[in-house]
Amino acid sequence: MSGEVIGIDDVSLTYHAANSDVHALDNVSIFASEGEFVALVGPSGCGKSTLLKLVSGLLSPSSGAIRVNGREIRGPTASVGVVFQSPLLMAWRSILENILLQIEIRGLRVQDYRETAQELIQLVALEGFENAYPHQLSGGMQQRVGLCRALIHDPDLLLMDEPFGALDAMTREQMNSELQSIWMKRRKTVLFITHSISEAVYLADRVLVMSPRPGRIVGEIKVELPRPRTVASTETLEFTHLTRQVRQHLNTEEGIG
């Protein structure tokens, strides 16, 4: 595939727990091309986060291959930025220093990235907070800092693991709309993991549905709603139709529907 950024090719993962083997992922294949926003929905414990750890190189698959930008992943790679559910900011670092952590750890020249950091801070509307400390910020603001930190080294791929799962509903809605506008400006390839169906449909170009453990991809729904999507677009018939489709895939897998 041309312009393929993520290539998860027939990946399975079995890990050894206390006294039994856990089959976490079963022949999962996901491909995403440049600039595509892919959301992954599934029940909790289906291996969504495991998949993300595989792509970021924190785990290796039992079988199959994972490529980012055509290069097979063997350990953490240079071209990925990760956002977790909790902001994971370091209490002893200012906002700016937290963002630049990515640069420090990767051994890049911090001086070269100060300007980029400032741009990102403006992008997420946190001007004036550069020298504040995490405890002085609200949860939503903290997560925006986490987003800046994931973007500072201009990665090809942004991995997000339920990034807004811990926020209240209103902040979450706002963060979704901000993420969309940031994505529209920067056009990164995004792999977004969530258990919220409407969030997935609102944000993604394509929604993939995962089954309970062992995780498999059981459905793929293309979302062709025009952008920028707004709260109004979540109230359209088409939106409802799409969320119903996703829900059906989830339900058949869980034996409810």
């Binding site: 970021s56 924190l58 953490p76 790679t77 990925v80 994971l88 370091m90 750890i105 990767r106 051994g107």
Partner: peptide, 10 residues
């Protein structure tokens, strides 16, 4: 998660 985060940075 914090350790995973910095490990993902290499």
């Amino acid at each position: 998660d914090m350790i995973d985060l910095v490990r993902s940075m290499g």
